[in-house]
Write a protein that binds this DNA or RNA. Structure first.
Lengths: 96, 96
DNA sequence: TTTTTAGTTTCATATTCATGGAACTATCGT
DNA sequence: ACGATAGTTCCATGAATATGAAACTAAAAA
């Protein structure tokens, strides 16, 4: 896999890129408001976009460390990763 | 000029885009660390990029509301705009 | 007045990003 | 076993972004 090791600023850039999109911001807000984890499907339903696009947005958020995923059979549940927000964007979620 | 009126999330997206770049992050850090305002030239010197590119980065930050500019004759001085950070990214500057 | 200095704007270009369709994987229900 | 369901991956494409060169504007210095 050869994952490139990122320094703090590269991580910050990746995080900001992940948040620099209205759809993904909407997803983050849904996850924040819901508190309980949501399935990709539930989120996708409220977002009027193709499956593949929605999947791509999930991947972007996950790879930036902003979410975690739990798989239960067919369904994938997504949750916010608080530590990342607290470390790189303290106070942001509350302001959202 | 016909400036399009932006809602909060559009502003957030614009802010995140502005911060989603290593050079601009570096500029923000310089401004934060320096405390006193810096000229475009002083900043440009430490950033090894063409004048036009640096100018473009300043514009991106300014249009996102992250900096303000004061012009003194030939020289332009740039400063962080704290209100914007406090409102959209509280705690971020301290974490930088 | 001519030249240098500080910064912007315009243009071309290469790269990255967002999007949907189609094919794929894995699991569930029948 | 077979069809439906939940998601991912691959591919093509149009839009947005970062970059530098060159031409430009305005003010300082000579």
């Amino acid at each position: 896999m050869n994952m490139k090791l990122k320094n703090e600023d590269e991580l910050r850039v990746q995080i900001f890129k992940a948040l620099a999109d209205e759809t993904r911001l909407e997803i983050v807000r849904m996850l924040k408001d819901s508190k309980k984890e949501l399935s990709c499907g539930e989120i996708g339903d409220r977002v009027d976009m193709s499956k593949s696009t929605v999947s791509y947005h999930f991947k972007t958020l996950r790879e930036a460390g902003l979410t975690t995923t739990r798989k239960d059979a067919r369904t994938k549940y997504v949750q916010l990763r608080k530590e990342t927000f607290d470390h790189y964007l303290p106070g942001f979620l509350d302001s959202l």
